[in-house]
């Protein structure tokens, strides 16, 4: 008896079972990696509401309606930037590519944050009040 024979002796059920388990495990691995991955997602807020959650790993371009008009945001190579904004001073665009933290355009009231933007979520040493 040789290897060739053994492989030929395997039943249809054998092969289906093995194939099924392999595909099943692979899809679970991919699925769980998506869910549990700590790779930050991009959270986009407009006028105080969360409007998009996007992956930093997928190149993307989105338009967000803000208070003044449309802000365009680009995600590329795990970085994010503002491409266009209706605000006057364009500070948000000038900030360029960012891979952490957040970009905020106050005039158009659009916030793009890498990782979740906890309410007032900046680590601070003290509060002035």
């Amino acid at each position: 008896m040789n290897l060739h024979q053994i492989v030929r002796n395997t039943t249809k059920a054998d092969r289906i079972l093995i194939l099924f388990l392999i595909i099943f495990c692979f899809s679970l691995i991919i699925f769980f990696n998506r869910i549990f991955s700590n790779k930050p997602s991009i959270h986009i807020y407009s006028e105080g509401k969360e409007v998009y959650i996007l992956s930093l790993n997928e190149n993307n371009q989105v338009n967000i309606k803000g208070r003044l008009g449309i802000t365009t945001i680009e995600i590329k190579d795990k970085k994010v930037r503002f491409i266009s904004s209706p605000c006057k001073n364009k500070l948000c665009i000038k900030q360029g590519w960012k891979d952490s933290g957040s970009i905020i355009c106050l005039p158009n009231n659009v916030i793009v944050s890498i990782g979740e933007y906890r309410k007032g979520g900046i680590e601070i040493d003290a509060i002035t009040k």
Binding site: M1, I6, V7, N9, I18, C25, I29, F32, F36
Partner: peptide, 25 residues
């Protein structure tokens, strides 16, 4: 556990196949 189990089961399937072939012999 959830993260690692598909990996273990996948490895087990491959190892099981090889073991099965050896057992057939």
């Amino acid at each position: 556990v959830i993260l690692v189990s598909p990996l273990i089961i996948l490895a087990g399937t491959i190892a099981g196949t090889i073991n099965g072939i050896v057992a057939e012999f």
